[in-house]
Computed example of a mutant assay.
Amino acid sequence: MAVESFNQDPITDLVPRQSSRRSHTIFVALQKEIVLGVLAPERTLTELDLAQRFGCSQGTVREALMQLNEEGLVKRQPNRGTRVAPCPVDDARALLSLRSQVECSHLDRVIARADSALTADLRALLDAMRNAARDCDEYALSVRDRAFHTRLFEAADLPLVSPILTRCLIHAHRFKILNSQPNRALEETAERHRPIIEALEARDLDQLRELLAHHIATIVDFGPDLTGDVARSKS
């Protein structure tokens, strides 16, 4: 059986690490497959199979699975093993609504604390998203997209709330990817972050709030509102 390489991917460094480097690499690899739907909801995952796949110990795999469990991407149950978590519409809609509330309710704090370093970081992440879109790399785009929104919210200086947003982001992206066509409009997805930066630079609170709320609710600018009845019809 081929063993997957542990060579460090630049993407891995963008995903917050809570464990050893080796288990984190496995965590990111599995997160990617779950978010993209390669590992389908309810798929059974065994520590032995994954250890053989990655050429590591079951303890290393266990660390990665525990982190995925904390993110809500897998379900670990005593004596029943580990399964990829489902992605139900009602949960996704609730998380999208929560994400909108978290991000959009504190933009006055973001604008008050915004500086050139923040906008430079956001523009760098936008360029990285553009590159990922041109490469048709939806996961890389997703990681940079999440990093963009995490960095934007950091300016609100609400560190106890940030983990809530992180949880919402990963599940929102998974839901959007699983409910859209493969290689959805990736370049449009990247470019819709540009007006957010422009509104921030202009310190236009109303425009920033309107743009961000729309951005959160839809896949792309012309897409359906996933927080409304259209999303419910997919259930």
Score class of each variant (00 low, 15 high):
residue 48 L to S: 14
residue 217 A to Y: 01
residue 213 A to K: 05
residue 39 L to T: 01
residue 4 E to N: 12
residue 39 L to Q: 06
residue 23 S to P: 01
residue 180 S to H: 04
residue 148 F to Y: 10
residue 72 G to Y: 00
residue 147 A to M: 04
residue 184 R to H: 14
residue 147 A to G: 09
residue 28 V to K: 02
residue 218 T to I: 03
residue 197 I to S: 05
residue 83 R to Y: 04
residue 95 L to M: 14
residue 207 Q to E: 11
residue 20 S to P: 01
residue 219 I to Q: 02
residue 213 A to C: 12
residue 100 S to M: 11
residue 124 A to Q: 11
residue 22 R to M: 05
residue 66 M to F: 12
residue 7 N to C: 07
residue 140 A to V: 10
residue 44 T to I: 09
residue 30 L to S: 01
residue 167 R to V: 07
residue 88 P to S: 08
residue 44 T to A: 10
residue 65 L to R: 02
residue 6 F to Y: 12
residue 101 Q to N: 12
residue 125 L to D: 06
residue 152 L to H: 03
residue 76 R to S: 14
residue 33 E to T: 03
residue 183 N to S: 13
residue 162 S to F: 07
residue 100 S to Q: 10
residue 106 H to L: 09
residue 65 L to P: 00
residue 86 P to T: 13
residue 200 L to I: 06
residue 59 G to V: 12
residue 219 I to G: 03
residue 92 A to P: 01
residue 143 V to D: 03
residue 225 D to C: 11
residue 159 P to F: 09
residue 4 E to W: 15
residue 205 L to V: 06
residue 75 K to S: 06
residue 55 G to N: 13
residue 101 Q to C: 13
residue 187 E to I: 15
residue 69 N to D: 14
residue 73 L to I: 04
residue 136 C to D: 13
residue 54 F to A: 03
residue 98 L to Q: 05
residue 8 Q to A: 10
residue 204 D to T: 08
residue 221 D to V: 10
residue 139 Y to H: 09
residue 94 A to I: 04
residue 159 P to W: 13
residue 44 T to N: 09
residue 162 S to V: 15
residue 128 A to V: 02
residue 144 R to F: 07
residue 165 L to D: 01
residue 196 I to A: 00
residue 131 N to M: 09
residue 180 S to M: 06
residue 198 E to G: 02
residue 90 D to C: 05
residue 170 I to Y: 00
residue 163 P to A: 12
residue 230 V to L: 08
residue 98 L to Y: 02
residue 10 P to E: 15
residue 94 A to W: 02
residue 170 I to M: 06
residue 87 C to T: 06
residue 70 E to A: 14
residue 141 L to H: 02
residue 114 A to H: 02
residue 141 L to F: 09
residue 176 K to D: 03
residue 4 E to V: 12
residue 87 C to A: 13
residue 188 E to K: 13
residue 71 E to D: 09
residue 165 L to F: 03
residue 98 L to N: 03
residue 54 F to M: 08
residue 102 V to M: 05
residue 221 D to M: 09
residue 84 V to G: 00
residue 219 I to A: 06
residue 81 G to R: 05
residue 122 L to G: 03
residue 120 A to R: 12
residue 75 K to V: 07
residue 133 A to C: 11
residue 102 V to L: 11
residue 144 R to G: 04
residue 211 L to N: 01
residue 37 G to S: 12
residue 119 T to V: 10
residue 94 A to S: 13
residue 106 H to W: 14
residue 189 T to W: 03
residue 23 S to G: 06
residue 14 L to K: 08
residue 209 R to I: 07
